[in-house]
Design a protein around this nucleic acid. Sequence first.
DNA 1: CTGAAAGCGCTTACAG
DNA 2: CTGAAAGCGCTTACAG
Lengths: 331, 331
Amino acid sequence: MKPITIEDVARLSGVSRGTVSRVINGSQNVNSETRKRVLEVIEKLGYRPNQNARRTAGGRSSTIGIVIPMIGTEFYERLIKSMEEKLRAQWYAMMLFPVLKRDWLSKVMMHDIPNSEAAGMFLCSFDIEHLFSSFRKPFEGPTVLVDSYSPLYDSIYIDNELGGYLVGRKFSQLEGSTHVIMMQESIDSGFWPVFNSRFKGFQKALLESGKSLPQRNVHSYDFSWSAGALAARDIFDNDRPPFNIFAMSDLYAFGVMREAQLRGLRIGRDVKLVGYDDQSLARDWGITTVRQPIEQMGEKAVNMMLQRLERPGKEVESLCLKPEMVERESA
Amino acid sequence: MKPITIEDVARLSGVSRGTVSRVINGSQNVNSETRKRVLEVIEKLGYRPNQNARRTAGGRSSTIGIVIPMIGTEFYERLIKSMEEKLRAQWYAMMLFPVLKRDWLSKVMMHDIPNSEAAGMFLCSFDIEHLFSSFRKPFEGPTVLVDSYSPLYDSIYIDNELGGYLVGRKFSQLEGSTHVIMMQESIDSGFWPVFNSRFKGFQKALLESGKSLPQRNVHSYDFSWSAGALAARDIFDNDRPPFNIFAMSDLYAFGVMREAQLRGLRIGRDVKLVGYDDQSLARDWGITTVRQPIEQMGEKAVNMMLQRLERPGKEVESLCLKPEMVERESA
DNA sequence: CTGAAAGCGCTTACAG
DNA sequence: CTGAAAGCGCTTACAG
């Protein structure tokens, strides 16, 4: 009933605990005969080192934590997958801390993360400045910011302003009325404001070509498919074609598409539509969208972490990736 | 630079390490004056107990692990959210272990989970018998199976056969050709076979009313939206209306819907369509579907875990929840 | 290459 | 109510 300890292995192998420990930790200073014998006993007993004791005694953890604001979206699925791929190649284990409700943010930050004893931590899409002003710093070890930026940490993110700008440039050449569907973001939410950046770039491009966007053409909603349909309804009811709609997430774009179909409006003709993210649905539906190099971001994030783990004192680094527009039938 | 230890707190409070430990662990046997003083020092120093040492010394872990086969779907998002809700109410921390690639299953099982030192573990949608015959048992502590069943563990799941049966009964009254779109599931994949169960129930209902389903009307694909569209294309090309299609996931149903629209087929008339899961998209699109009590499953699963944590020796329990059909315009 | 020993930061009977 | 002490399972100089 009792768990098998290093002591048991030592006794049965006829060596000391120190030697067993060296075998476990892959030290070179072990006679290969001895190593073999110890390994056999470990196998026979089904011994597994107690990680807590190991870490307590000063050994290194080999799991990396990832904090993300949600699951259930293609963006994070792809991001996590690409990160895990590289992490596993380096023998790291991964654990995920999703913040599924806003109220739980403090619990994740003050309880889950400190308790995890991970070797390193990725914080994805969080606005670290606001976060760390409300919470005690949750993690002392190597930290890499993904999809957000701070001068105080290694960070990697995608240029959202550029993404919006690309769409804006395209839209400035189009006839008709221009509308934007985006998510309401509050400054102190603790999340990195991506929509606002996209909007900023978009508006910049419009201004450059002498156009402007009336406030009433900006539609702010929650983050859902239905919101896109709702916004579209509003637009179609109160303005006249041709419509140019920048749906700042493909999710919104799907809603717009659906609503347009119901009214017999032709996407790509009566309605020019551009989404954001290049989700698989956008590909299938022929939606013009902005592609973000998600996998690349994930891989480079892991690289940063590995380097930081190697040299904790090295200077902080940051990397900005570029999105690109993918032209399809919808615009 | 050095982390603050219980020793530091003890010294500054003028008590022994034992007393500090008692304060931390909420023991009643501490003078309230003493407690107050210790608490103040803890606060001032920003002391946080080292969880590894704590567990090494025999203290209880307060984090629960959840292993799931994927993220990025509404099903698991809802499931995890409902579980986390209850878990947090009991002061447990949660960590997630998604198995994003089939090849990683062994790493998660043999590395991540044993290393996690969680107090309990939920295994979601895994076929535990096949899993544990290929792997050494990954977790010794309290284990609860969610969305799958084994007589050896506490388990909670939803009756997929009944779900299929409900649809089958409906379809047996319909005119036209009947088709099924489902996912290919191999017996030894390690995942719980939900599609096969749904199919079994579906076929049973059909047989009861004297109908039968030709093998060529069963369309097996991977799990994606596009697969639904692909299957629909196949069906529309090689059979004639009216079509009755049981898409065994709403995801498939969306693909069918899209394909039907492209061809000018009217959903609900030329094409009777039933999905599975009652995702939010199904609601928005008026798709008849089978609703699974996901949140209920999550909550009850946590109840099981809490009870198991309380009384590790209690006898194994299992619970089967019932799905229901939600009738909308599509069928 | 290996053992004996000190140490990691905590918990928990035990004795008072 | 509290301290002194043994113990949790491991790691890692140190000495040989």
